[in-house]
Computed example of a mutant assay.
Amino acid sequence: MDWDDAYSNGAYIEGAEAYPPRWASEAAAYRASSNAEEDIAYGDGERHKFDLIQPNGDAKGLLVFVHGGYWMAFDKSYWSHFARAAISRGWAVVLPSYDLAPSARISEITEQVAAAVTKAAEHVEGPIMLAGHSAGGHLVARMACDGVLPEDVAARISRVVPISPVADLRPLMNTSMNNDLKLDETECAAESPVLQTPRAGVDVTVLVGAKERPVFLDQARWLSEAWSCDMVVAGGKHHFDVIDAFSDPDSDMAQMLFP
């Protein structure tokens, strides 16, 4: 099996190269038109910052949206417009950056996202929802595991939505990406959500596109089966547009998550 090809998304999405610049442009425009406070520090590192976008009036709760990029690409500035659905429905949204491989291991990135969620919880009261895309899907799933977040923060987590997550890291050891990720059996065992126990009482909904690469459909199914949680397969969606539901207040997913 060609593992690099199996986990290659852009090669199988028409116009894939246009997505990142479009995301960046739409995100910048949304930040400029919204009640956004940028670059709030949650740690000491240059990338240990998040943006907080507030709705009009008191927030019903907090959504933390964690970006993907195989733990090796992007930052918070590309994703602000994916807060639109939550904001329009009265939720505050935090979008964190984190260190990237190879300068950080995945286990360290998990710790950074936990620190970001913990700091964000100080800014907004009420329930906390976590959503993340691809590598971000892995990271929010890790937040749902026992012992990752402080107890007082973990107790506020109401729902976690891993979107096209990499829930089992072990296959990535067979890819050339592992030159930067530096995964080994020990880290895969500790960091793969499918091998961990989710916290009791947290609703988990796995979202994946019907037109994604087979391995991503497998990864979503593995997590759904391991955790006995719901899986939603979005018809007609691929790896890059499955997140569009979070920018559309009228999407079925938005209406389900933010009633």
Rank of each mutant, 00 (worst) to 15 (best):
V206I: 15
A36Q: 12
A116P: 03
K119Y: 10
L207G: 04
E185R: 09
M231N: 11
L52C: 04
V148R: 03
D5H: 09
I163K: 00
S176G: 10
A27Y: 09
S33Y: 01
R47Y: 09
K60G: 07
F246G: 02
Q112D: 08
G235W: 05
R142V: 02
L62W: 09
G68C: 04
H67M: 06
A200D: 15
S247H: 02
W222C: 03
A234I: 13
W3A: 06
A190M: 14
D184F: 12
L62S: 02
S134Q: 14
F258H: 11
A29V: 11
V166Y: 13
F240R: 01
A36V: 15
Q112K: 11
R170I: 10
V233L: 11
P127I: 08
G61V: 06
A59I: 06
K182N: 12
Y19V: 12
R105M: 07
K49R: 15
P165M: 05
L257R: 01
A104K: 14
I163M: 03
D2C: 13
A36S: 15
M1T: 13
V160D: 01
D218C: 01
L62C: 05
E125T: 09
G236M: 13
D203R: 03
E212L: 05
D2T: 14
V148T: 09
P162F: 04
E212T: 04
W79M: 06
C145K: 03
P171I: 00
P249Q: 08
A200M: 09
F246E: 02
H238C: 03
L207R: 06
L217Q: 14
N9M: 05
Y30K: 14
D99P: 05
A200V: 09
D4I: 07
A210T: 10
V208I: 11
I106V: 14
Q219A: 04
A144I: 06
E46S: 08
H133A: 00
E212P: 00
L257E: 05
I243T: 12
E187S: 15
R159Y: 05
W227D: 00
A131R: 06
L217W: 07
E46G: 11
D99F: 05
L217C: 10
I106S: 03
L223F: 10
V161D: 03
P214G: 12
T110F: 04
A154Y: 13
F65D: 00
G235H: 10
N56H: 13
H123S: 15
V160S: 01
S251F: 02
A135R: 02
T175W: 06
D184K: 13
R89V: 11
E225C: 08
A86D: 01
S224T: 11
D51H: 13
W91C: 02
G137Y: 05
D146C: 12
G137I: 02
D250G: 13
M253S: 12
L95Y: 07
A73M: 11
E185Q: 10
M129Q: 12
L149H: 06
I53S: 02
L130R: 03
E37T: 14
M177T: 08
H81S: 02
Y42F: 15
R105G: 10
V66F: 13
G137M: 02
M143Q: 15
R84I: 10
G10Q: 10
I109P: 01
A36E: 13
V233W: 09
